[in-house]
């Protein structure tokens, strides 16, 4: 975007403006599963405050959310529901796999836990930790914002 010197308007591409808007207001879906969900809630608390990054509200309805933060271990019974929620989200959408359990099954390599949520939905950013500190989640949201700004899967012309 350029500021035209001497005039009172900016010149830019629609794509850039749209990406700037998307990146500045990533609204997550409340997809709290286990311990990582508590750290995700802590990221909304005053000490870490995810709202200053643009995630002012966590939307409960997948239709209204941009970002699904899969926070916690994904049990086999919950897996189809996560897939359904992901399908219900409108494009463009992003996924953060928060914590070791969501990224790869974590400490639980057994019959009950899906070994990584990326076996059922595509993931954009993985956050390691058990649970990751809220700083880690904030950095992940930063990375999502960078991905949005630079285009690729998150651009306004992206398909699912």
């Amino acid at each position: 975007m350029e500021i035209i010197p001497g005039q009172q308007f900016l010149l830019g591409k629609v794509d850039d403006v749209a990406r700037w808007a998307q990146a500045s207001s990533v609204w997550p879906l409340t997809m709290g599963l286990a311990c990582c969900a508590i750290e995700m809630m802590t990221a909304t608390a005053p000490e870490y405050d995810i709202a200053r990054l643009g995630s002012e509200v966590f939307r409960a309805s997948p239709r209204q959310a941009d970002l699904m933060i899969v926070s916690g271990r994904v049990a086999r019974k919950m897996a189809p529901i996560i897939k359904r929620l992901y399908d219900q989200m409108a494009d463009p959408k992003w996924v953060i796999s928060m914590g070791a359990c969501a990224s790869s099954g974590g400490v639980f390599d057994n019959y009950a836990i899906v070994q990584g949520v990326d076996t059922i939905i595509p993931v954009d950013v993985y956050v390691p930790g058990c649970p990751p500190t809220p700083d880690g989640l904030l950095y992940a949201v930063n990375l999502i914002q960078q991905q949005i700004r630079q285009g690729g899967r998150g651009g306004i012309l992206a398909r699912a």
Binding site: L33, A34, G72, R73, A75, R76, K77, M78, I81, V107, F108, N110, Y111, A112, I113
Partner: peptide, 9 residues
Amino acid sequence: YLHTGIEKS
């Protein structure tokens, strides 16, 4: 929906 098999682990 959060059955983790902790006891078996």
